[in-house]
Design a protein around this nucleic acid. Structure first.
Length: 575
RNA sequence: UGUCCCGUGGUGUAAUUGGCAACACGACGGAUUCUGAAUCCGUUAUUCUUGGUUCAAGUCCAAGCGGGACAACCA
């Protein structure tokens, strides 16, 4: 017997071998080739987020990849914040990212920040100037753009390209000392303004920004650009495989150029396709917009594809890891159907979530032959998938609530639930037969009148009567009212970004993505702790939200159960 | 339009690197069921196009078509 709900399986369990697969993806193949060829002795990776937003499911793919590779090859994986742009980065994001990575079940080898390397980066920049490979440029942002040319036309050299080493050194030192205004000068690598690869047209290494940095404070007024910071950070940390997304493919020649110009350890950059999901948006900019414009309640709104949103929605770390393992890693820019994600959490929760009964849209049902005032306790299995899950006692009486949708006065042939003149099993209790209904003035059914069959109590074995269907119920006098938030997809369309002329992703928001109702639940449900996940039988999986109070539990719908009947009915095949 | 990357069932990922195109999810059908869930069984459907090399091509070559990235002092 087990009346109260046990906490859900640990969120902190370390990933098992779920990502281990006999088949190698292209990244693993590259790693094994390099290892075999002796290019590297081992595997060192890193997950390098910029702390300018919350992590989303796309980042989970990268996290699983980077940490998974390190684990698979007995190497290490660092968490490094790419914090080179103080105007966009905040400690709030740093904290949320660390929490999310831990929650997903990963432990980083070392915690680093690109800003840890500002001093070294500066020294290396001086070295490149001395080698004639970098120069201070006086062009404004607009001029720089103009001089760069276009994808089809070569760029022109900056007028300052051939400054003397001495002058460059002097100017660069004064940039650092704060003598110049924001945007007035940059330090650029001297590569090739005519390169067909735009990235190589004398890329900017440093810009002047008199801005407060979340870690270095006001120590610097020049900040390195991504290309100048990222690869060097990788090198400093002894990273062997620098895994990043496809849009950095064009940057790889520059990544290698810097390492070779500096004659430092040169990790191998490998690019993979980022995750796209149907019915959602994945860009940080758009997610930020949803938050700022209050289209959602925050970064952790249960409809958000953020890790914190999924966590609050009730997703388990294991299900997210399984999802990431299932979708694979490749260079093809694909879009995964969200049902794949939903299936992953269903699959996990089916195994571990206790079952409970709750009626979302209640209609009263009276047992006309039930002894006045009598209450029986019936025994219900907590989880048929888990023999160790035990059972619980549920109060049963003559006044019940059932799901309005589980009753029809006149039903199609394939309707296996309760109908007038028919019988149905009440889960874990008795078989009942409906003989009448009570309606209000509008003809709406307000009460269903049934008799119960005393010989059919579950587990008694005193009758071999069979019925087609089994439905869930709660006892009227014992039911607890709980708030239930029924979440649906945030967007109505598969690809919110692919709008018609003048439309934005916001035009595709689903107005019904949240519906809040009060449900009637069996008593044990009202005692569940925040974070507990349960299956409301025949409905779906739910989690106790942090908005719950001791008096009022709030449940988020994580995902519904597969609904074969609903689909049949929707497609008109119910008869 | 210049450079780079990518095209395998409905969706995604494989194919021992030139040797019978497979796996998962979906869809569909059935069995089973005190959850129309889960489980089990089965069915369905694929190499972008054209040409070439070869005994043999998803894989190599050429051309074409289609998709993506790059013209921030963002990452």
């Amino acid at each position: 017997m087990n009346d109260s709900l046990p906490p859900s399986p640990s969120d902190e369990t370390a990933p098992s071998n779920e990502t281990a697969s006999a088949k190698l993806n292209f990244v693993e193949q590259a790693i094994e080739r390099d290892l075999a060829a002796g290019r590297f002795d081992g595997v060192a990776t890193r997950f390098p987020p910029e702390p300018n937003g919350y992590l989303h499911i796309g980042h989970a793919k990268s996290i699983c990849l980077n940490f998974g590779l390190a684990k698979k090859y007995g190497g290490s994986c660092n968490l490094r914040f790419d914090d080179t742009n103080p105007t966009k980065e905040e400690t709030e994001y740093v904290d949320s990212i660390m929490e999310d990575v831990r929650w997903l079940g990963f432990t980083w080898n070392e915690l680093r920040y690109a800003s840890d390397y500002f001093e070294q980066l500066y020294d290396w920049a001086v070295q490149l100037i001395r080698d004639g490979k970098a120069y201070v440029c006086d062009l404004t942002g607009e001029q720089t753009r103009e001089y760069r040319g276009t994808v089809t036309e070569p760029g022109r050299n900056s007028p300052n390209r051939d400054r003397s080493v001495e002058e460059n050194l002097d100017l660069f030192a004064r940039m650092k000392a704060g003598e110049f205004k924001d945007g007035s000068r940059t330090l650029r690598a001297k590569i090739d303004m005519a390169s067909p690869n735009m990235i190589l047209r004398d890329p900017v290494m440093y810009r002047i920004m008199h801005a407060h940095h979340h870690r270095t404070g006001d120590a610097w007024c020049i900040y390195p650009m991504y290309d100048w910071a990222h690869g060097q950070s990788d090198s400093l940390e002894g990273i062997t495989f620098s895994i990043c997304t496809l849009e950095f493919e064009n940057h790889r020649p520059l990544y290698d150029w810097f390492c070779q110009a500096l004659k430092i350890h040169n990790p191998r950059q490998i690019e993979f396709a980022r995750l796209n999901l149907t019915y959602t948006v994945m860009s940080k900019r758009k997610l930020l917009q949803l938050v700022q414009e209050k289209r959602v309640s925050g970064w952790d709104d249960p409809r958000m594809p953020t890790i914190s949103g999924l966590r609050r929605r009730g997703y388990t770390p294991e299900s997210i890891r399984n999802f990431c393992a299932e979708i694979g890693v490749a260079k093809f820019n694909s879009t995964i159907d969200v049902v794949k994600l939903e299936n992953a959490v269903r699959e996990h929760l089916n195994r571990v979530a206790d079952r409970r009964m709750a009626v979302l849209d209640p209609v009263k049902l009276t047992l006309t032959n039930w002894p006045e005032g009598r209450v029986e306790m019936v025994e219900a299995v907590n989880n048929p998938e888990d023999p160790a899950g035990g059972t619980r006692q549920v109060p049963f009486s003559g006044t019940l609530y059932i799901e309005r949708d589980d009753f029809r006065e006149e039903a199609p042939r394939k309707f296996f639930r309760l109908k007038k003149g028919g019988g149905v099993r009440l889960r874990a209790a008795y078989i009942i037969d409906c003989h009448d209904v009570v309606k209000d003035a509008d003809g709406k059914v307000v009460e269903i009148l049934c008799t119960y069959d005393p010989e059919t109590r579950s587990g008694s074995g005193s009758s071999d009567r069979k019925v087609k269907g089994t439905i869930h119920w709660v006892s009227g006098e014992h039911a607890a009212d709980v708030e239930v938030r029924l979440y649906d997809r945030l967007f109505r369309v598969e690809n919110p970004d692919a709008g018609a002329e003048g439309e934005t992703f916001l035009d595709h928001l689903n107005p019904d993505s949240i519906q809040t109702i009060t449900a009637k639940a069996e008593p044990a449900v009202a005692e569940a702790e925040v974070g507990t996940r349960v299956q409301f039988e025949r409905i779906g999986y739910f989690v106790v939200d942090s908005d719950s109070s001791p008096e009022q539990r709030v449940f988020n719908r994580i995902v519904g159960l597969r609904d074969t009947w609903g689909n049949m009915e929707a497609k008109g095949r119910a008869d």
